[in-house]
Structure formats: structure tokens, C-alpha cells
Design a protein around this nucleic acid. Structure first.
Length: 794
RNA sequence: GGGGAUGUGGCGGAAUUGGUAGACGCGCUAGUCUUAGGAACUAGUAGGGCAACCUGUGGGAGUUCAAGUCUCCCCAUCCCCACCA
């Protein structure tokens, strides 16, 4: 069969769309807005198939909404700061800025070859000073609200990239998200965002969001809210005492405490404060603290060292031993844990190993073994005996002088990076070393260029003479600049506001425009960003919402994660495996319409499946488009009732499935229609036109070309989405399934509203079906109109 | 260990939400046309059986006239979190 010439057609229409400014949106005048967002790419220099999956498929929905009369904004930009640029600079002596902007140039071409309905006038590049001026401004606002602060803390240190990482950037196996290096723990003075202030709202507000449960749960889990009690404990040695406290979710087991364990971090702090805890404790604590988190967690065997400290039980006043043990985490709760070996597995293991007393305080009725961590009735707990564990929880906490408290797994977001190619933190220090936000009139606080950025662990900006001079010139002698740059996740946590008003010089975006366009109607992206970018963006949005900078409390009305395209061999695409599919070659061979349709056809878009690239399937999709094209030579004649019914069914199906991101079933029904039309002698113009309208979101170029060919008016994108004729659909006959004695025996063609009696009569008059009834008596008939008739016989 | 999801032909996946399981595509088989084709087209394609039929949605129970879909118990795979007190 003769195929169509995708190269000419796609070039022709991409130019025409561009010239007509077809996808430019006026955010000020739009009436019925739809804001669709896809995660903007890092300018790595080469577009891969994953980008197509991420950008070309949601474009189907954008085009659908546009044909339904919406003012659709579908923007694109670049997350342009980051390490690859800097590493390329170090390796090949390139300028990171040059490297980045050259890559962006290349990617522009590739992105345009997709033929998406992007509004290119709104492109945003985070490394552009016009953009990062506002990244810096947001930082200064957070600083003013004490949501950005500096503190001495143990942070994740990536020894390869030589920079600090946020907790979210350390993978479960303890390696850096980017470098893959084993992350170390290092005590440093660092900038943080106080995301923990928003922990409750970040959890609670999830309830009202129309997001998949798995995404919400992943965030809830990450934030890790835990309700319990904080109970004071006094630890003493040599006449000195330390008033601390433990966090527990089981205050009811307080009378079963037989020892206390402290985290190595706490022991180290005590030693630094001059406590003499002995050589063994010192050695153990220091060794544990410097261990990479992974090593420490890998060792499931409980270890610990007895300290000379003595803890006083807050109720019984009994003296109990204190251990330092590395299974106690320094950054969760208080880093001090009460040991209840009878009712906690870890404490039990520890107590058994070090031969410590075990006192059961929950009556297990001898049915459960110790350790027993369930609920029950208290025993061995003095006046609290016979209380239920549930009721005793708060009472015991109060009796011990403690209070109910909630803790979180979430840590504050570490945002300083000791690297060059990033947004400079807009802070200067006065001669006394106090930090001050750089006032708005000096923003953007530009990234200096007189810097050698070979990573040494010291931030490269420290070497910039220009930055030093600039600071002193503006703020006075003795003032010094902050030398760290911002985590690039900060750049990307607000870009969606900027798309709305990208050239605004007075605000990150105009308030009225924000009010009209936020929140985003649908945001699709990768599942790997659930606890990174998406969480950070929600935090920044809430902080800005509280400052009345942005209008919506949540930025993303709908979030959906997509799947992953694998290589033809079923493995993740990677250069080393040699299984990378180059989209440019595919554009050349099949055209953009085919790639987009193939990726849409592969499965449900809003589920995170893994899809191996199938070179034969894509040929099948191209065959389908060729068939649509070829069909244009058979135009003419009248619409038959049968064809019209199939057409109306297809309109109904596509209009129902497409908005739900079920692009694959939408295409399937279009293929079904084509199969029917091909069997006809001729195809009426109106039928073909409707087919093109339905196909336009999936294959915009070839649909537009055919639209023009058959005399369609103007751009197909401006044509109205067809509406199914409900009269035709209602008048259609259906196949009524016939069951006899509960077994499927066939079907009869009937009107949708046929009565039970008429249907029964038809079955009786049908030789084949009535044979199943035979001489048997009809006991009962179950009839579901338009669906099924089930005749029960004796 | 905790949380979330998913199990349907050789493969990706459908199933009007409790109503004829396997739409659509790939692959496969046969044929047509071709010097040839890994091109295109036509027909077939869950398994078993010559057939009428029978069996089939990870396994096992159950509810129902009717279960891929609902309930309970297992099994497997994937993702997230995890010595979180």
C-alpha cells in the first residue's frame, strides 16, 4: 500500500502552525482555561524516547481540550542548572553556560519535530537571570519568614560530586541520586528550608486531592507522621545530670522500661560537652557517627556499649542502665529511646544479648509470646494495672511528666550546594557574620564567571574576586557573599507560575493571571519525583500561598505518573547496553504522528507500567495511519445507517476514554472504525471528516493534511470536536445475550428497549435457542434490558 | 516488618463497572500478488475435541440466576518506606 509522505507533511504543517501562532495563549484574556503541565526536561543535549512519552502523549489531551473550546496552555522549558553542565566543563574545559545553551538549541529542534502544541513564547529556562531573579526572590521571602535558615547539622555528603545532598536525593541503598557514590555523613553549617513546619498540611491536604492513592501514600509515608508521647528522663553520671526525653508511641508500656539507649550522635555530643563516658563508649560512638547510613543500617545485629550513665525512671524513680547503640537514630525523635524488652522486638533482642531484665507489663493471657507488641490490659504497672493499653497511654505519659507529641520522619530540606552551576543563594554576611537577604533591587544576584569550578569541597564561588568586590561595593567593607548555590530542585519547584507570565519584571507572575490559571489542571510526570519535586513544589506553593503570593493552596489539581519505556530487550535503555532507541531516527523513518500514536497505544497512560520498545508494533501503527490516508481515495456516496451507527459509537467511545488518559482504547476504537470503513465501497465525506477530527489529537499532521485535502475549513485544531448523536445510539439494536440454565447459548438482535416478554418470545421462536429449553419447564426468567436474558429451566 | 499496586492468550492490553472474556494492535499460520521480500493485501488465531460441546482470567473457598469484576484465605511479582522507638 502506498504510504503518505510524513516528511513533507509534518514540515509543512509545523511551519504553518508556527506562522499562524496557533498555540500561543493569551493568559490575560482566556476565559475557559485548561493548564496542562509536563515536567520540563534537563538540557542534556539529546532527546530520548522517554521525552517523547512524557511530552508527545499528553499533547493528545491538550489538543482534545482545545477542540472542545478550552483555552489550553501547554508550555515547555528547561531545568537548566545542574551538575552535568559543570562536569562537562571540568572534563572538556567548556563553559557550563555555553554547554547548557547549546544543548537547549539542539533540543529545540528535536522538540519541535514532535509537532506538539507547545506555546513556545512562554519558554522558561531556570538558568536565565530573568528567571532566577525570582528563584532568589522566593528564597528571600522564605528567609524573611524564618523558613530558610542556617544551622550546624549532620548532612549527606556526596564524595564524588563533592556536595551536600538532601535526604530525598539519597537513594534507599545509601548512594547519591546523581553520582551513585556512597553518601557520607558530615557535620556542616548548612542552609535549610523548614519544610517540617508544613508536614501536617502536606499530609492532611492530600485527602482532598484527586491523585492516585499510591502517590498520596508515598508522600504520607515519606513524611512519616507518628503520634506518641515525649517523656522526660534524667541521665546522670559523676554528679552531672542531663535532662532529656524519649519519644514513644507506647507510653502505656512505661513501667516495663528496664534500660535506656541513646544514639551515637547523642553520646558524641555529651563527650564534646565534657562528659567522661569512657574510652569504649567514645570509640563506639565516633565510629558509628561517621559510618555511611547504609553500613549502619545493613547491620541488623544489635550492637551497643554500656555507658556509665544512669537513667532515673520518671515514675518508679528506679535507676536503670544506659547504653549507646547504633540502632537508635540520631535524627528521629530525640535520639534517646526507652527500652521495653517485653513489648518491643528490637529492645527484646538487645536485652537478650546484653542480659538485661525483662518485665512484662501487658497481660498476654499466655497466648502470645514475649516480646508481645499488641494491645491488651496492663499488669506490673502499679495503679495502672487493669487499664487497657489504649487508655493508659496518655495517663502514663502525664504521670511521668511528659506530654503527647507528634514526630515526623521528614527532615528539613537541605538546599545549599557547594557547586558552581546553580542559582546563587541571595545572601550576604555583615562583618559580624550575620546573614542578610539581598534586597530585591539587587536581584538577580548574578552568578560570577571568574571561577575555577574544579570541585574541592569548598564552594567554587569562594574563589570569585568579582563576587567579593560586588558585595563590598554594594553593602560595604567587610561584607561577604554567600558562596553556595541552591539545590536545583528549588529552581523547579515554582516554574509553573512563571510559564503564566514569563516576562514579568515586577513579580514572579501577575497576581490576576495566577488567580485565573492556578491550580494546574493536570500534571503528568515520572514516579521518581513523588517525594522529590512534587513534594517540594507543594511546600513552596504553600509557603507562597501563606504569603499571599499565589492563590491556590495546592498547585496540582490532578497529578498522574506515567510508565517507563524500556529498550527492545526489556531492560532500561542505556548506552552501555546498546539498547537505546533514537527518536530522531524514528521521526525520519515513521514521522512524529506515528511515534506519538505508538506511545499512546502502548497501554493506559496514567499507570506506571514498563513497556519494552516494540519495533514491529510501531510499524503497525504506521500501517494504520497509512490506511486512513489511503481511504481518502474512496470518498463519496451517502452515509449508510450501519456506518453511521459505528461512527457514532466511535465518537462516544473516544470522547469518553480520551479525557481519562485512556489513549490506547481511543485509538483501538478508531482502528475498529477503519476496519469497517475499508470494507465499504465508498466512504461519505462527512464520515471521513469526523474520523479525521477524532484522529487529529493523536496524529495532528496527517489529519490536518487530509483535512485540507478534502476541503475542511482552516486548521483542524480550530474545528469543533464531534458530538455523538444520542438518537442514533439509542435507536440502535443490540445483541441480547441469551443464557439458558445459566449457560451462554447465543444472542439475539433486539431493540434496546425490548420487553422481557418479547425477548422471551424471540428466544422461543429461535430454533437453535429453543432447542436448549426442549421439554423443560421454565422456572424463572431473569431479564436485564439490553443486556441479557437468562432462562432458568427445571 | 509497614504501606501501595498488579496478576487475563505467545506479547502489549480490552471487557459498557456484576451480564456472551480475550476488543484493538503485535506475533504466528495459510493464501493472493511478486524475480524476490523482513513489503502490501485476504482469511484464521485462548486451550481441548472431527463435531455437538467442554474447559478457561495466579490458586482455593464463598455470595449470586450470573463473578475477570464482590467477600474471605493463600501464592507470586513490582513500587515506596523501613532498627522510625
Amino acid at each position: 500500500m502506498e504510504g503518505y509522505n510524513h516528511k513533507d507533511i509534518e514540515k509543512k504543517w509545523q511551519e504553518a502552525w508556527q506562522e499562524a501562532g496557533l498555540y500561543a495563549v493569551d493568559t490575560e484574556s482566556a476565559k475557559d482555561k485548561a493548564y496542562l503541565l509536563v515536567e520540563f526536561p534537563y538540557p542534556s543535549g539529546d532527546l530520548h524516547v522517554g521525552h517523547w512519552f512524557a511530552f508527545a502523549v499528553p499533547d493528545i489531551y491538550a489538543r482534545y481540550l482545545r477542540m472542545n473550546g478550552k483555552d489550553v496552555l501547554y508550555p515547555i522549558g528547561f531545568d537548566a542548572f545542574g551538575l552535568p553542565a559543570e562536569n562537562a566543563a571540568i572534563k572538556h574545559g567548556e563553559d557550563p553556560k555555553e554547554w547548557t545553551f547549546q544543548n537547549i538549541e539542539r533540543m529545540h529542534k528535536q522538540l519541535r519535530s514532535m509537532g506538539n502544541s507547545f506555546d513556545w513564547d512562554r519558554e522558561v529556562v531556570t538558568a536565565d537571570p530573568g528567571y532566577y531573579k525570582w528563584t532568589q526572590w522566593i528564597f528571600t521571602q522564605l528567609f524573611a519568614k524564618d523558613l530558610a535558615y542556617k544551622k550546624e547539622a549532620t548532612v549527606n555528603w556526596d564524595p564524588v560530586d563533592k556536595t551536600v545532598l538532601a535526604n530525598e536525593q539519597v537513594l534507599p541503598d545509601g548512594t547519591g541520586e546523581r553520582s551513585g557514590a556512597l553518601v557520607e555523613q558530615k557535620l556542616m553549617n548548612q542552609w535549610f528550608f523548614k519544610i517540617t513546619d508544613y508536614a501536617d498540611r502536606l499530609i492532611d491536604d492530600l485527602d482532598d486531592l484527586d491523585w492516585p492513592e499510591e502517590i498520596k501514600d508515598a508522600q504520607r509515608n515519606w513524611i512519616g507522621r507518628s503520634h506518641g508521647a515525649e517523656i522526660p528522663f534524667v541521665l546522670s553520671h559523676n554528679g552531672k545530670s542531663w535532662n532529656t526525653s524519649v519519644f514513644t508511641t507506647r507510653a502505656d508500656t512505661l513501667m516495663g522500661v528496664t534500660f535506656v539507649t541513646i544514639a551515637p550522635e547523642r553520646a558524641k555530643e555529651l563527650i564534646e560537652d565534657g562528659w567522661d563516658l569512657g574510652e569504649d563508649v567514645k570509640e563506639y560512638a565516633l565510629k558509628s557517627v561517621s559510618k555511611p547510613a547504609r553500613d549502619r543500617e545493613a547491620n541488623k545485629e544489635k550492637t551497643g556499649v554500656k555507658t556509665p550513665l544512669v537513667a532515673t525512671h520518671p515514675i518508679s524513680k528506679k535507676e536503670i542502665p544506659v547504653y549507646v547503640a547504633d540502632y537508635v537514630l540520631g535524627n528521629y525523635g530525640t535520639g534517646v529511646v526507652m527500652g521495653v524488652p517485653a513489648h518491643d522486638e528490637r529492645d527484646h533482642a538487645f536485652a537478650t544479648k546484653y542480659d538485661l531484665e525483662i518485665i512484662p507489663v501487658v497481660d498476654t493471657k499466655k497466648e502470645e509470646e514475649i516480646p508481645y507488641s499488641g494491645e491488651g490490659v496492663l499488669m506490673n504497672s502499679g495503679e495502672f494495672d487493669t487499664e487497657t493499653t489504649h487508655n493508659a497511654r496518655e495517663k502514663l505519659a502525664k504521670a511521668a511528666g511528659g506530654e503527647m507529641k507528634t514526630t515526623y520522619r521528614l527532615r528539613d530540606w537541605s538546599i545549599g550546594r557547594q557547586r558552581y552551576w546553580g542559582c546563587p543563594i541571595p545572601i550576604v554576611y555583615d562583618p559580624e557574620g550575620n546573614p542578610h537577604a539581598i534586597p530585591k533591587e539587587h536581584l538577580p544576584w548574578t552568578l560570577p564567571t571568574d571561577v575555577d569550578f574544579t570541585p574541592t569541597g569548598v564552594a567554587p564561588l569562594a574563589k570569585s574576586e568579582e563576587l567579593k568586590e560586588r558585595t563590598e561595593k554594594i553593602f560595604g567593607e567587610g561584607w561577604t557573599p554567600e558562596i553556595e548555590t541552591l539545590d536545583t530542585f528549588m529552581d523547579s519547584s515554582w516554574y509553573f507560575y512563571r510559564y503564566l507570565d514569563p516576562k514579568n519584571e515586577n513579580a514572579l507572575a501577575d497576581k490576576d493571571i495566577l488567580k485565573q490559571w492556578m491550580p494546574i489542571d493536570r500534571y503528568s510526570g515520572g514516579s521518581e519525583h513523588t517525594t522529590l519535586h512534587v513534594l517540594y513544589s507543594r511546600f513552596i506553593n504553600k509557603a507562597l500561598f501563606d504569603m499571599e503570593v499565589v492563590p491556590a493552596e495546592e498547585p496540582f489539581r490532578v497529578r498522574m505518573n506515567r510508565g517507563l519505556i524500556l529498550g527492545p530487550d526489556g531492560n532500561k535503555m542505556s548506552k552501555s547496553k546498546g539498547n537505546v532507541i533514537n527518536p530522531d531516527d524514528l521521526v525520519e523513518k515513521y514521522g512524529a504522528d506515528t511515534i506519538k500514536s505508538y506511545l499512546a497505544f502502548i497501554g493506559p497512560y496514567n499507570e506506571t507500567g514498563f513497556y519494552p520498545w516494540d519495533p514491529q508494533s510501531i510499524a503497525g501503527i504506521r500501517r494504520f495511519l497509512d490506511r486512513v490516508y489511503t481511504l481518502s481515495s474512496k470518498l463519496g456516496g451517502e452515509v449508510t445507517d450501519e456506518v453511521n451507527l459505528e461512527l457514532q459509537k466511535t465518537i462516544e467511545k473516544v470522547s469518553r476514554d480520551l479525557p481519562e488518559a485512556k489513549f490506547h482504547t481511543s485509538l483501538a476504537s478508531l482502528m475498529g472504525l477503519i476496519n469497517i470503513l475499508e470494507k465499504e465501497e465508498s466512504v461519505a465525506d462527512e464520515v471521513y471528516k469526523t474520523l479525521l477530527l477524532l484522529l487529529a489529537p493523536f496524529a495532528p499532521h496527517v489529519s490536518q493534511e487530509l483535512w485540507e485535502k478534502i476541503g475542511g475549513e482552516g486548521f483542524i485544531d480550530h474545528a469543533k470536536w464531534p458530538e455523538a448523536d444520542s438518537k442514533v445510539l439509542e435507536a440502535a439494536t443490540v445483541m441480547l445475550a441469551v443464557q439458558i440454565g445459566g449457560k451462554s447459548r447465543g444472542a439475539i438482535e433486539v431493540a434496546q428497549d425490548i420487553s422481557e416478554d418479547d425477548a422471551l418470545e424471540l428466544v422461543k421462536n429461535n430454533d437453535k435457542l429453543s432447542a436448549y429449553i426442549g421439554d423443560s419447564e421454565i422456572k424463572k426468567v431473569i431479564f436485564v434490558p439490553g443486556r441479557i436474558i437468562n432462562i432458568l429451566i427445571t
